[in-house]
């Protein structure tokens, strides 16, 4: 497979996943807003600021906006074409990448992605958003899930598909670290206790933004604590958005691409993914909290970036730098 094509498959997939993460986070934050008792501008600001922090959009946002309001943040993260990580930009970038690899992906995938793009550009997306932002974000997440299903069902599960998986799971692992980290940025209002009413609501929001609520309650019946939520989202073996699960898929995709067996490595990307996989396999939630959840998440993000860089080096090392304009989150 052409290196450029591998690179485009990889980024196409990352952008789709990134758009989905933004839609989820906005959806959940909208819902949390409904529970917020204090509706002063300061409270609203406190409520939306973590969204910008999580998506690393804060700097650009403050450059173009004076105050944080719900409308401004949603507009910025959803429709703003000047924001390179807005949902519209991500879907646009995914589509540009898809256009360059149309002979690799199925027509069904292309048409679905193209329809999504047209929907967001002028084909009714704005209208649906104005009607009900929550429904709009859910619909978008649905559409993007549909794309994953179409991909699975219509594309040959060969090298191109493996690069799509690699991009998807790297981005998803990264996004789970960010969603968890959101809690680090949210300050509990004065007088609220860890484990108190507001704290629990916030942790439940974290679960919801990973579609993890139901799966979580099957294991931790009727009880929500930061400790257990973090354990579930970092270390669960079978939940498809947990970091351990995603890293396992990353490692698998890398080994399928090279043909190397999973106990060994044939390039730096596989070595790094194998190490991260084993670290997660032999980590307990106690040790995560000992080093500090935020520090752990930060470090994991850095390691995911290293894997991404090493994979690019292994498979696309002769691509011109000018072509590599796509950026990490």
């Amino acid at each position: 497979m052409l290196s450029r094509v591998a690179d485009s498959c990889y980024w196409l997939s990352r952008y789709i996943e990134r758009a989905e993460t933004s839609a989820r986070i906005l959806d959940v934050n909208m819902q949390l807003l409904l529970d917020l008792e204090d509706s002063s501008p300061e409270a609203i600001q406190r409520h939306w600021q973590p969204v910008l922090a999580t998506l690393e959009d804060q700097e650009l946002f403050t450059k173009t906006h004076d105050t944080i309001t719900a409308d401004a943040v949603m507009e910025f993260v959803t429709f703003d074409k000047k924001n390179p990580s807005s949902i519209v930009s991500c879907i646009g970038n995914a589509r540009e990448n898809a256009r360059t690899v149309r002979e690799q992906i199925s027509s069904e995938m292309w048409e679905q992605l193209n329809r999504t793009y047209l929907y967001l550009r002028d084909g009714g997306g704005r209208h649906d958003f104005q009607d009900s932002p929550i429904d709009f974000y859910r619909r978008l997440v649905d559409i993007l899930h549909g794309f994953q299903g179409t991909t699975d069902a219509t594309m040959t599960h060969g090298e191109g598909w493996d690069f799509l998986q690699l991009g998807k799971y790297l981005e998803r692992a990264d996004s789970t670290t960010r969603v968890l980290d959101i809690k680090y940025h949210i300050l509990l209002p004065k007088g609220e206790q860890v484990g108190g009413h507001v704290d629990v609501t916030q942790w439940m929001a974290v679960l919801r933004s990973c579609s993890a609520m139901e799966a979580y309650f099957k294991i931790n019946v009727g009880h929500v604590s930061g400790w257990q939520v973090a354990e579930f989202l970092i270390l669960h073996d079978e939940f498809p958005r947990s970091i351990r699960f995603c890293v396992d898929r990353v490692d698998g995709a890398l080994h399928r691409i090279s043909g190397c067996d999973r106990a060994h490595f044939s390039n730096e990307a596989e070595r790094l993914s194998g190490m991260l996989k084993s670290n997660l396999g032999y980590t307990t939630i106690e040790s995560v909290f000992q080093q500090g959840l935020h520090q752990f998440l930060d470090k994991t993000q850095a390691r995911l970036n290293e894997i991404s860089g090493a994979a690019t080096k292994a498979y696309c090392y002769w691509m011109d730098e000018s072509a590599q304009t796509q950026v990490q989150a």
Partner: peptide, 12 residues
């Protein structure tokens, strides 16, 4: 796509 062959740019 119709011929089942690669499409390349000069950089490839």
């Amino acid at each position: 796509r119709s011929m089942g062959i690669e499409i390349v740019t000069g950089n490839d």
